[in-house]
């Protein structure tokens, strides 16, 4: 499980953020709640990024795992920011 969590961590953060946004938009559309969701998600991504950089690279598998993990987190950082922008501009107070 640990390796799967490392590999998919960033993308799981993206998933949480996306479905959180969907719930906010359907139940209580508000740009501030969007911020409340987005900032912790970015925080978790930043944490995963720091942890990922410290992962061992002793052999090819470990190196591969580290690069997939870091790539996923980087993608998640970009995607979370990107998908939070429209709610910020279109959301109600």
């Amino acid at each position: 499980m640990k390796t799967w969590a490392i590999l998919l961590g960033g993308l799981l953060v993206w998933t949480t953020h996306f479905f959180g946004l969907y719930a906010i938009a359907e139940i209580a559309p508000s740009r501030w709640i969007t911020v409340l969701l987005t900032v912790p998600c970015l925080g978790v991504d930043a944490f995963l990024l720091l942890r990922g950089r410290r992962l061992e690279v002793r052999d090819t598998f470990a190196g591969w795992r580290r690069s997939i993990a870091l790539g996923g987190v980087a993608l998640s950082l970009v995607a979370v920011c990107w998908q939070a922008l429209p709610p910020w501009f279109a959301g109600t107070e």
């Binding site: 938009a25 359907e26 998908q83 429209p86 501009f89 279109a90």
Partner: peptide, 26 residues
């Protein structure tokens, strides 16, 4: 995270349409 881009013409709330549009580009 892109399923609702098939439903833009149903009158989705602007916030929903916005982030589905963003995910569809992503």
């Amino acid at each position: 995270g892109v399923w609702a881009h098939h439903m833009f013409a149903t009158g989705l709330p602007p916030m929903t349409a916005g982030f589905f549009s963003a995910a569809s580009m992503a």
